[in-house]
Design a binder for these strands. Sequence first.
DNA 1: CTGTTAGCGCTTTCAT
DNA 2: ATGAAAGCGCTAACAG
Lengths: 339, 339
Amino acid sequence: MKRLTIRGVAEIAGVSIATVSRALTHPERVTEATREKVEKAVRETGFVPNSQAVNFRRRSTRSVILLVRDISNAFYLDVYRGVEETAFASGYHVLMGDGAGDDKRILHYIDMVRNRLADGLILMTSRLPKQALAAPLPPMVVSLEEIDSVRLPTVAVDNRAAARLGVEHLVSLGHRRIAHITGPMHLKMATDRLAGWRDALDAAGVEPDPALVLEGDFHLSSGAAATERLLASGAKFTAIFASNDEMAVGAIAALRARGRRVPDDVSILGFDDSVYALAADPPLTTVRQPRREIGSRSMDLMIAILDGEEVSREPLLSDVDLAVRRSTAPAPTNKRRSR
Amino acid sequence: MKRLTIRGVAEIAGVSIATVSRALTHPERVTEATREKVEKAVRETGFVPNSQAVNFRRRSTRSVILLVRDISNAFYLDVYRGVEETAFASGYHVLMGDGAGDDKRILHYIDMVRNRLADGLILMTSRLPKQALAAPLPPMVVSLEEIDSVRLPTVAVDNRAAARLGVEHLVSLGHRRIAHITGPMHLKMATDRLAGWRDALDAAGVEPDPALVLEGDFHLSSGAAATERLLASGAKFTAIFASNDEMAVGAIAALRARGRRVPDDVSILGFDDSVYALAADPPLTTVRQPRREIGSRSMDLMIAILDGEEVSREPLLSDVDLAVRRSTAPAPTNKRRSR
DNA sequence: CTGTTAGCGCTTTCAT
DNA sequence: ATGAAAGCGCTAACAG
């Protein structure tokens, strides 16, 4: 099972190993005749270069690590896909790592590129242990989240503007008492979306009511729990903006359990346009993030960095839009309270 | 930014590079004293071995490829997680590849291990282009699907028994007219589940009615479409067994659009216990596959193979169970046709 | 244009 | 127990 090496091919082709290497990597630097001899030998033997040796020699790996905050979050599926497609097209490979909220894991992945097991790291978590900053950082791009401790090339969406866009849709439907279920407040994306909610209300001349803000953790059950707290508080509201679709689905379940209809009594707005949005009943109106595009842009940026290009530290913002489905409807008028 | 090599450490520690290598990889083969000298030098310099060189020399990569049928299928999330956790614990890395129904991509990934870019391949697609069989196959394990052309170590669930288990639950609730929305019939998992549906009916003394079998493609919309065809056909049924949760959600939407209540009028049974199961309204009764376990067992098997252990070609079956939730209920009696 | 040669950074005999 | 030396398979000066 001993595989053929470049030496064997050279022998068969009757040339030196250097010539074989050249014929394969810089065909234009050899004569037509030798190129053909080499190609013939390669064909006959089924020779394929040992990439490990090539990479070792070239000090490159042609692979990058995609480190996500939580691998079981379906959100990353499409992002990964965008990264993988772009990588594949440029001859790169993608290793996906799970941050899992664990500094050790994250440091481990950073070390992988320091140890020359990957060329770069695409970070999709805001968790960057300070120990990581002890040594110089490897080629990195940050996506979807922000790292405050250090300024790195970034791909993102303007969560604040995006949230505002969504909430304005509710406002335009006549809603004024709009509750908001946030994400974990230690995440910038969560506070940004909260700010966007406030922006939209301010713009509409509505005083944001702190009683209508409930913290969630991006999981379905927290959306349900927050909604129950909201209902129990007795606060009035005609719409809920959940900071992601999963919590929106939880909110719908909680509302329905208490006999409130969606969207007749309460409109629901989600965020992400994830698999949950279409699975929900009714399908969610939601702020759509271009996940795949974010993935491919991140990889493009990574490639540019690895190619030694000068890249901007200004965040690359992707556009979001609103997927209007059936979970939102005009606000019920005070007179006619349900049917 | 030139990194320190083993030579530098050797110099500082005042020993040969061979000794440094030994002290690091086989500490017991050097004296206490030298080990300390070396460790000190390593600490002072922050030396970390170049993994690429180590792997090259050892002809290993400590990485495996996980090739899935469709990367945007949320089902693989937990599977990946199981693989990754087990791999991480053993010092392996996981490259996830997307088969995307494309032979070229699949061959590419197989070549990656032939080219020594990965040690092995975990296949989660039944698509194995015959060209792949031209050369000897690299270390491989097949999971969740089956390859007929060649017998490989396999991790799987008994889809037939699993489906039967689920349908028996419906039978026990008094259902007799149970429709089945299948997966793509070219997939063995789909035909196996169909067989399980038939088994359960046979066991209950019910003649399986071909008019109640509709083909789907595992996507939500196909579940809805199949259900619409079923309703349009005028066939009577009190339950639907969908070959995965996603189609079950589609079925619920279609039923509800036509005024049928779930589970009052029609019970719905899903398969997978994926994110869709809990997102559904009502939450789905579904056959649960231990996805994470399947992932970790696959990786365990891979590691055993790479360690040169003799492994069985007998499929390793994981147990499934039934998650009973609110989408199933006793069959409506003929007398009292809804309220 | 082609061949010779010197490594890449490490592990592993083989002597000592 | 340690060191010298021989590579792993390939690329890239450098000569010719």
